[in-house]
């Protein structure tokens, strides 16, 4: 839990960017709620996984600040070991939350 604040600052913006791109119809407030949930879940993972995620998240944030958002989205679609698993974890937690909480959400994220 000690890493939770730093994980939030590292992961939350990336999660929001990925959600906005994948699910353009998702209301902004919902995207923030989903990203917050995702960070909360990441913060209770095993310590070595949290550490690994924090390192990857930091590198991703640095990359995004240098290369910009479009490049971040390109990065989120790569399937490199660890990096690909980081983005997959964000998407897994986010999608599971969205469709469990709002099962009739459309495939673009817009509410019915």
């Amino acid at each position: 839990m000690a890493l939770a604040p730093s994980l939030h600052s590292l992961v939350h913006p990336t999660a929001c960017t990925v959600l906005r791109h994948d699910l353009p119809g998702l209301p902004e407030t919902v995207a923030h709620e989903v990203a917050t949930f995702t960070v909360r879940r990441l913060s209770v993972l095993a310590a070595h996984m949290r550490l690994g995620i924090a390192v990857i998240a930091l590198l991703v944030r640095l990359f995004a600040s240098i290369a910009g958002q479009p490049r971040l989205l390109w990065l989120s679609k790569t399937h490199l070991p660890l990096l690909g698993e980081y983005f997959r974890l964000i998407r897994s937690l986010s999608y599971a939350y969205i469709w469990e909480k709002w099962p009739d959400t459309r495939s673009d994220g817009s509410p019915t």
Binding site: D22, R88, R91, S92, Y95, A96, Y97, I98, W99, E100, K101, P103, D104, T105, R106, S107
Partner: peptide, 24 residues
């Protein structure tokens, strides 16, 4: 198989599979 788990099962090829989630 609740809707959240259906979404999770479609995740790996979401670009092609996403339409199915509306029929969960």
């Amino acid at each position: 198989s609740h809707a959240g788990l259906i979404a999770l099962s479609l995740l790996d090829q979401w670009s092609d599979f996403k339409g199915a989630i509306e029929d969960w």
